[in-house]
């Protein structure tokens, strides 16, 4: 799955990857790979600007530590981030059910 196919969903994926606890950038990418069975094909370097964007929006918070002599920034979900993740999950379920119904002829979900 390529970056352009993830457009609009990357934020939700990153928030979900941080739901289990604080992670640094590479660990976030590893968590995403593990969760998707290695089907994500994103340049790892492009995860970091997305994390910065989420931090600027107050959805995650970053803190610095030193590991093996290297400065490391670790991110964790904020309260607003957990709320945003819940909203994005609900929106995704609705979207997937609606498109699934249209493509496969199943029942359309109740709009309420």
């Amino acid at each position: 799955m390529r970056a352009e196919e993830l457009k609009g969903h990357l934020d939700a994926l990153l928030l979900a990857a941080l739901e289990g606890g604080p992670r640094h950038g590479y660990a976030v990418m590893e968590a995403l790979r593990e969760a998707t069975g290695g089907r994500l094909d994103l340049p790892t370097g492009t995860i970091y600007p997305a994390l910065h964007r989420l931090a600027d929006a107050g959805l995650i918070a970053g803190s610095w530590s030193v590991v093996a002599g290297r400065r490391r920034r670790v991110y964790q979900l904020t309260v607003a981030g957990r709320r945003a993740l819940a909203g994005k999950r609900a929106a995704w379920r609705d979207f997937a059910a609606t498109i699934g119904a249209a493509l496969e002829g199943g029942p359309c979900p109740d709009p309420a």
Binding site: H24, G45, Y48, R71, R72
Partner: peptide, 11 residues
Amino acid sequence: VADELADGLAE
């Protein structure tokens, strides 16, 4: 930012 990327690249 460069420090953060360097850590990620090392990992």
